[in-house]
Design a protein around this nucleic acid. Structure first.
Lengths: 200, 200
DNA sequence: ACCTGAACACCGTTCAAGT
DNA sequence: ACCTGAACACCGTTCAAGT
């Protein structure tokens, strides 16, 4: 009757990773509001106090989750930055990556942009954003050198393009626009950002 | 010894309004996460079950709060739409109103854009957004008639401008940009949206 | 019609004690 | 080093009962 050993060992093995994986699953399936440390612990099969060993509090787990989000988004954006592509299609490709990531990870993105990270973690997070922005700025600078973008502070010009794409993603996230509509009109959208709303 | 009547009558008078006012105060001062129905009730001086008479649950109160936010923003935007102003300054004025509202009501705006409203309340909320967008579309249509904006679907052109402004506000909200920097560069930002990033 | 008080089923966090 | 179990101070929601 006691041939079967405990199916759950006293030590989990890698509870920290298990918590992050389980948390992101809950985030995706039920949203941030439904994320409870106790439920996570139950699902994984540890006591409700166990998560406290790996994350000082719930916010620390959310911060870690946000950080993985930034890493993955950064990775995807880097892959979309390739040499010798015309400016328009290049920016469109970046925008497509950003939009798609936002749609497929809506709750995670909401977490990434939440303004309530610990001050300790705020700097790393700001760095992550900064790193992702850098390659975009370089893209604009290169285009300026070729005369394909107007002269002026490249950070400002990048801001205008980034805000346009970020805003489009935001409208999709909040449901003002469907993801399909945004993706279908993306070429045209980027064209209008590059060429302006005024007649030439 | 009993000359002083109860300082708190059994019936509050207008508990519903008091809850909304108190809730928005908490939202502004401590954020959405710190908003508790029980604490609201304590502050106002009613039992913790009293809010249940006026809002079926916490989400219903948040929905009502979001609705007041949309009303106020709509009102401010309407006031910024006045006849006989050149297109650039007109759009800049609208953007300034939007940015300022977003900065001054960050937590409320977050609530307004949260994708977790009851399906019952979702339609009224979508209407509120639609109404605010209408006057912007009309602005673009008028400019098209005067030849100040390129031909094309006015809804799409409005989307590009609105996404640009919405995205800028989003970057301020998440801390990627200071409110001062966004407001200081607003004229230039709108100019770039209208004239494009490509040289003419 | 409006509110109270008790009850229920949850939370996050802490901390002595166990392995 | 890592985890448990009990305890504490909170939640939101419901519902009979009070005014």
């Amino acid at each position: 009757m006691t041939l079967m050993p405990h199916s759950r060992p006293y030590h989990h093995g890698d509870l920290r990773a298990a918590l992050l994986i389980s948390a992101e699953r809950t985030l995706r399936e039920k949203g941030a509001a439904a994320l409870s440390l106790r439920e996570l612990a139950r699902d994984i099969g540890v006591s409700h106090a166990a998560p406290g060993r790996h994350f000082k509090d719930k916010q620390a787990l959310l911060d870690a989750l946000a950080m993985t989000g930034y890493s993955r988004l950064h990775q995807l954006l880097e892959e979309a930055v390739v040499p010798d592509i015309p400016l328009g299609p290049h920016i469109t490709a970046l925008a497509r990556v950003y939009l798609t990531f936002t749609v497929e990870n809506a709750a995670l993105v909401e977490l990434m942009y939440a303004r309530k990270h610990d001050p300790d973690i705020d700097a790393p997070l700001a760095d992550a954003v900064e790193r992702s922005m850098r390659s975009f700025v370089r893209l604009i600078e290169d285009a300026q050198r070729r005369g394909e973008i107007v002269a002026g502070d490249p950070e400002r010009l990048t801001l205008v393009a980034a805000a346009g794409i970020h805003g489009l993603a935001g409208l999709v996230t909040t449901g003002a626009l469907t993801a399909d509509a945004a993706l279908a009109g993306l070429d045209e959208h980027i064209h209008l950002i590059l060429h302006g709303l005024k007649p030439r």
